[in-house]
Design a binder for these strands. Structure first.
Lengths: 229, 229
DNA sequence: GCAAAAGTGTTTCCCATACACCCATGG
DNA sequence: CCATGGGTGTATGGGAAACACTTTTGC
């Protein structure tokens, strides 16, 4: 691995987000090696020669977090390259966010002392390695704002889901409460967002909810704006 | 400069945009060296060891385009790193967009055969070097969409400007026509967008227009949405 | 029947649009 | 006086917010 050298190194860092118990959770790994040994950090690693950036991100996801590329939405967020952000030398890191539906507890991967999910509140008390606090904040904000004008919310849910579950995603990610009736109308009327199925979810104490699947669309027009922002 | 090597190299590429004669223009340089010698390309260059990404972008702006950092808004767009995008080896390039007010004709910079502004229409007929067509498209789309929800439009204008000029920016960048009256209301009522001055522009055949200056705000709430999109 | 969740109807209000109209200048 | 662009007023319509109400299940 790179020690302080005369070359710039390229890395990827991943902010893996999922919903657990109605709260946004992020996957952190505990570093086994220096620098920042023992500290919690975003999963990441160096890009190999000839490797695609997305490819490197998927590899890290698999190696360090034991997550397959199956149901994960991967997207570039920003690139961080301030000299000094990594004590080993000049490391330029491409930050990704990865969103997935109810992702499993990670198994410990390579060069990783421990790995687990953290809710964003718990995270307030932890000091992350490198500049990962900034990277994470940037990714979370990107995820929050992308829910407004894209159909990304569905990536936090299983293949088929109810409108309530979808509303739950927005409420969890934005930390707000939305009117169930209005949300239902808006979600179902928005072209290209949802595909109605002829199936119903098992009732949870009330009338069974119709199931939907994500339709092909990616952009939400008109957007679902967060209130008082 | 880097020949095919066993290391990944990091570069920046700049999409410099300005308005000229009511049309969005982009700055291209004609390459003096291989690869793609003679082809038109976005200004760009390798990041030096210990150099900040923004710093590298400003350096390229100054070296290749003879543009100072004065009235230019610089912002990261995306990072391109597919192996093979540069025949010299594995080059990861951080794409920036730079927006400026009525930027001057560039003087030829280092390692540059020629440099000039191109309107986006002219550009349709040119084949750009590397993957710069993709990079440029990505930056232009980012600029277009950022006008909707940020106060970025003012960076295309001088220090003080009239509402009509501001409307002109939107019309040029979006290629649409906006209602003058409604635009005036919306722009002046939006909190944090404009600061009203007690000065008036020289009349251009009608009532003199009041001058405004960009206020501190960065985000536009509510956004100025492009129509039928 | 009652509670709970799903889904629809209804009212109200805001805001974007369209466009008429007045204002201030040069010729 | 007219032409031109700046700026305001006003009627209209569509959609968001608030909330009442109906539907469909389990207990």
């Amino acid at each position: 691995m790179a020690t302080s050298s005369s070359e710039i190194h390229v890395a990827v860092d991943l902010t893996v987000l999922t919903l657990r118990d109605g709260a946004l959770n992020v996957l952190l790994i505990q570093r086994e090696d220096e620098p920042h040994r023992g500290a919690w950090a975003l999963p990441g690693g160096f890009v190999q020669l000839g490797e695609d950036l997305d490819g490197a991100a998927y590899r890290v996801l698999s190696d360090e977090a034991s997550l397959g590329s199956g149901a994960v939405h991967l997207e570039q967020v920003r690139t961080f390259g301030t000299p000094g952000r990594d004590p080993r030398g000049h490391v330029v890191s491409v930050a990704f966010m990865a969103l997935g539906a109810d992702l499993p507890d990670p198994r410990r991967g390579e060069d990783v002392a421990d790995a687990r999910w953290w809710s964003l509140e718990e995270l307030a008390e932890v000091k992350l390695a490198f500049d990962h606090a900034t990277v994470l904040e940037c990714a979370v904000e990107r995820a929050r704002s992308k829910l407004e004008y894209t159909t990304l919310a569905a990536t936090f849910l299983p293949e088929t889901f109810t409108i309530s579950q979808l509303r739950g995603v927005y409420e969890s990610v934005w930390g707000a409460t939305l009117d169930a009736g209005n949300f239902h109308r808006k979600a179902t009327r928005t072209e290209g967002f949802l595909q109605e199925l002829d199936q119903y979810a098992a009732p949870t104490g009330g009338r069974p909810a119709r199931l939907y699947r994500a339709a092909g669309g990616t952009s939400l027009m008109p957007p679902l704006l967060r209130a008082g922002d």
